[in-house]
Amino acid sequence: MVKFKINNKEVQGNKEDTIWEIAKSNGISIPHLCHSDEVGYKPDGNCRACVVQVKGERISKSFY
């Protein structure tokens, strides 16, 4: 289990989950285009609508 804050709201989820999934299961919707819950629409991380800044890295990472 991991715990962290999104928009000042305490959230938690499994370690294997992505930030996006944890946000969703906690009722926070993050815009996205590249995937859907349906079969065959796995997250590719190429629409880049959701990105995170990783501390110490120059470039943002997609957080699918």
Partner: peptide, 10 residues
């Protein structure tokens, strides 16, 4: 610069 996957877009 911030959101592209690889060096080309960045």
């Amino acid at each position: 610069n911030k959101a592209s996957i690889c060096g080309l877009g960045q």
